[in-house]
Design a protein around this nucleic acid. Structure first.
Ligand SMILES: [Mn+2]
Ligand SMILES: [Mn+2]
Ligand SMILES: [Zn+2]
Ligand SMILES: [Zn+2]
Lengths: 138, 138
DNA sequence: AAAATTAATGATATTGATTATCGATTTTTT
DNA sequence: AAAAAATCGATAATCAATATCATTAATTTT
């Protein structure tokens, strides 16, 4: 594990309130990719007074500060996860919805090359793989 | 060029009405990736009586029939294009919004490999590159 | 070919996620 | 401590997309 979101906020000068700190903590502890409703549920368990508006505001703030990243997977609502130094992409099980993270340096390199070939500098990319589990027993 | 959308409908047994035929024609002639509002504008010029509801219904029908494909690029509304045999991905100019199509067989292969490595069969994928134009005169 | 049935359309209401507003509360600055 | 600024909770507004429903068009049955 790396820096906690709270520490990142300190570092980046993002002011923390009790509500933000709680959202930060819950997101730091999450190992999945919760959407806002799910996140709201989790923080509500600890602070039942928190407003869904604050959750929306805070993930947006954190995203704009480069602390969280937002995913818009096929057809669903926006999901969030902590942004750490190691970039990764996602393989999504179309049956179960399970999300597997992966990195493929070769693909990353080729993406840059494609952009260059067209006269562009790559500034961002989105790679999502959708798959079905293979039958392992023969 | 390949088959027209109207012909594809015939082939796939998708019933055509005047409105659907018009939407099919406009989409077949499009070389870009219009969203529903833009498409509605284009067909309205020819048939001012057409309803936006019909446009929404028809792109959905065509998509479910494998005739159109829907793109959900970052932050915007859904965009559509005709689905032809040759698959391609997109490089988006973040300044101008211009969309460049590309195919990279190497990336395509590697994606399959990544899925396999995790015990999955790749059934779909989304690859979007976001770039800024390079300064060519240097 | 007329009647009955089914499908598609246009207009509009509804939904669902997200953003905006606004008065109240908390925090920071004078 | 008063004034100003920031954040909050509650809720209204927005926006894309879907659902509803009465009307019109197409298809099937008599
Ligand atoms: Mn992830
Ligand atoms: Mn395209
Ligand atoms: Zn990547
Ligand atoms: Zn591809």
């Amino acid at each position: 594990m790396t820096d906690t979101i709270e520490q990142k906020c300190l570092l980046k000068g993002v002011k923390l309130t009790d509500q933000r700190r709680l959202i930060a903590k819950v997101m730091s502890e999450a190992s999945d990719h919760p959407d806002v409703d799910e996140l709201y549920k989790r923080v509500s368990k600890i602070d039942p007074k928190i407003s869904i508006a604050t959750v929306y505001r805070t993930v947006k703030l954190f995203e704009e500060s480069g602390i969280l990243t937002k995913h818009e997977f096929k057809g669903g609502k926006a999901r969030y996860e902590e942004l750490n130094e190691g970039h990764h992409d996602h393989l999504i099980d179309v049956k179960s919805g399970e999300i597997i993270e992966f990195v493929d340096e070769e693909i990353e390199e080729l993406q840059k090359k494609v952009a260059e070939k067209h006269g562009y500098t790559l500034v961002d990319h989105k790679l999502e793989l959708y798959g079905v589990k293979k039958n392992l027993n023969k």
